[in-house]
Design a protein around this nucleic acid. Structure first.
Lengths: 179, 179, 179, 179
DNA sequence: TATGAATGAGGGTTCATTCAT
DNA sequence: CATGAATGAACCCTCATTCAT
């Protein structure tokens, strides 16, 4: 079995559960049943582990979002919404880690480049869609659309069990399919 | 000036800037030009400082939101929106600290009670308004409304300088004033 | 009892015995019967301890060398020689530490300023004497004189028990008193 | 090129530059572009690398010093002086390494035998010369002569660029050729 | 010869907290 | 109300060395 991958997975779940700063290298080693030396053999630093986790996630996002389509604008939006909600249910771990890391000044700092890459990636593809709908307002509309998704993710993560995910999704779908 | 207040203010700005976990008691003492003993005279622990900061902010929020009104539902929403955006511009420090603290599992843990109080406070007042608009969907509409605000705050904090705050606000206003 | 002084003394003897790099903070703490935290309360880093030790020694050297005199040049040289040999016998610990630290690139690096200060201090006072003896050759003579002392210290430290310190001293004295 | 030789050379220059304790096996491997396994295939330990470097240097010294001659005592001294100064200019790396290693208690310990061998080698050949000059004082004279050379090396390494090597050499030459 | 994954003890440093004054 | 010496556990990281391939 690939130890490096194991470390990465273990770290991801620990970072997500305890937060990056509150996860020690020792915890990772113990959880992965691996020596400290090995972790540092594969990764330059604790930061670097997070960077690699982030890099991988970004890569996945790219692959998903690159599926260009010939659908109508509103259908494209619906696809994004669909992906977003299924992601939300499937991978709370990654979501929680992302938010933790983005609002922790120290981690945000050294992930800056990647965070910005992701932002512009998402913004770019959304903007392209809204350009077809309303050239003039497309900027604000794009930001609004993204803010809605972000806000839902944020609320969902905060309340979690009781969050009416389905109702909210219907709300969004009905709003954007009529465009 | 009151030393306790001074410590509180200093801690707030440091927590916001570096994150709670990355701010040491030493830093607070140095920045406030105060001895360690004094800080522990006023506060039981580092956690307790954060708790008190949070308590104060919550208190302010209560005062603001308690301004009950006889306005129409949409006007009430507009008032909330108005408050929200002015708060956004005025007090980025507090906003950043809130988000940092909410997505850090360790801090989230011991602020749980207060976080939930705030949530239900906000949800309660918003729900009351949407009940007047659409009894049936009011739950989803409330969550959606809150998600929009949260999402805007989040995006704003991420992008910051270039965020089209005014356009977004107009977008929101025009959406909710027509209800 | 002054704990800071205790730490300093303990560190000096350990550094001298094991070398700076091979003395751990743990060893210092144990030997001084003091907690790690206290050491870092008084000193910013392990390096800083060495810097302070060096600073103190430099200060002592200054006090000794500043005793200006109205003696003849050769008598002044004899005084220096006298001081040097008594120092050699009295404080092997400091001597060994100095040499260790000066020929360890890492330590030499951060003590650079002080090492240079000492060098020029010694050179300055020796040069002043040789200027009175032979203006033209005073530079080379000074360097030669210093080299002799350094070389003796070095050899003495290497061989130690069997080193004919007295004979060597006589040799030097008879050489320089005839000037 | 012979990999073992390559490792030896790389280690020599790294040890000289950073000091023995501050050079890691990893650095050596990277600098020599060689795997860890290979280094440990050729050398039992890090210490053993240093031992072998030292052994080689000692061997060279032996070869040089064994050139017995029928010259006059003072001419023999001049030859030694000549060799010493040319060595000084040619191979600062080795000189620096030697001094580093000799004043680091840990390394000194396991090189003890070789260091003593060198000392007695040098002392022996110098003593033999001074015996011809002044039987009675030859011991002190020998130590003095060696101390002068050591001291010059030491000063030279400390000051380096600005050291008046030539003047000093002249000084020495004129002193010993008149014997 | 040659590689590099894997170990684990130990390195320097930070930090919230306590307590005598 | 105010100081700062003192603690000790925990932190991230380095390192010489081993071993299967």
């Amino acid at each position: 079995m690939n130890k490096k991958e194991l470390i990465l997975r273990t770290a991801t779940s620990l970072f997500s559960e305890n937060g990056f700063e509150n996860t020690s290298m020792n915890q990772i080693c113990n959880a992965a049943n691996v020596s400290k030396g090995l972790v540092y053999h594969h990764f330059d630093s604790k930061n670097e582990i997070l960077v690699e986790i982030f890099r991988n996630t970004t890569e996945q996002m790219k692959n998903i979002s690159s599926l260009s389509s010939n659908e109508s604008p509103s259908d494209q939006l619906l696809t994004i919404i669909e992906n977003f909600f299924s992601q939300l249910e499937k991978d709370v771990v990654t979501l929680r880690l992302n938010l933790n890391v983005m609002f922790q000044p120290s981690t945000r700092e050294f992930l800056k480049a990647q965070i910005e890459e992701r932002s512009s990636l998402l913004y770019g593809s959304v903007k392209k869609i809204f350009d077809q709908i309303d050239q003039e307002k497309s900027n604000a509309l794009s930001f609004m659309f993204i803010a809605e998704l972000d806000g839902i993710a944020l609320s969902f993560l905060s309340i979690f069990e009781d969050y009416p995910l389905l109702e909210i999704k219907d709300q969004l779908v009905s709003k954007y399919q009529s465009l």
